[in-house]
């Protein structure tokens, strides 16, 4: 039984640790968005959720023993002719896959603009209701509630 548990940890937890943490962070963000009463706390939960998704996508592009996706000094890409390789050959295993990085660059900028818009709306809500707590805002919106 102990051997089985150790094998499970060695096979599933350690090599896929990024994915476990991304699920945990995503659930933390979802929990905060659903249950927190304060609007700023809800927005922090939303930002945690976004970074969890970005963490998932960046984790896809990582390879073992890979460096940053930039050619070193003196390295250059050459087209290898059939049968006669010329110069040094660059293998793709040396570099992390840059495609998810570029996609997630857009997602970060979109996430910050979403956060900025939501904070601006929160300021307007505080201006007209005088509070940032969700239940107090709903009390004031209800007919018969104090204005």
């Amino acid at each position: 039984m102990e051997l089985l548990a150790a094998g499970f940890i060695e096979d599933n937890i350690v090599p896929k640790f990024n994915y476990w943490i991304y699920v945990i962070l995503m659930m933390i963000g979802l929990y905060a968005m659903i249950t927190k009463n304060n609007l700023i706390k809800k927005l922090i939960g939303m930002a945690v959720f976004q970074t969890a998704i970005i963490l998932f996508y960046v984790s896809i592009g990582v390879k073992e023993e890979s460096g940053i996706p930039i050619l070193g000094h003196g390295q250059h890409h050459e087209i290898v002719e059939e049968g006669k390789p010329s110069g040094e050959v660059i293998t793709k295993d040396e570099f992390a896959n840059p495609l998810p990085h570029v996609l997630m660059l857009t997602a970060i900028v979109v996430g910050v603009s979403t956060l900025g818009l939501a904070l601006a709306i929160s300021q307007r809500i505080h201006g007209s209701f005088g509070t940032l707590e969700e239940d107090e805002i709903l009390d004031q919106l209800r007919p018969g509630g104090h204005d």
């Binding site: 970005i54 570029v102 970060i108 900028v109 900025g116």
Partner: peptide, 17 residues
């Protein structure tokens, strides 16, 4: 993790702004 472009965008935009 090797995503340096994402790292400095996050440092400037995510953590800063």
């Amino acid at each position: 993790m090797g995503a340096v472009d994402v790292a400095f965008t996050e440092a400037a935009v995510g953590a800063g702004v």
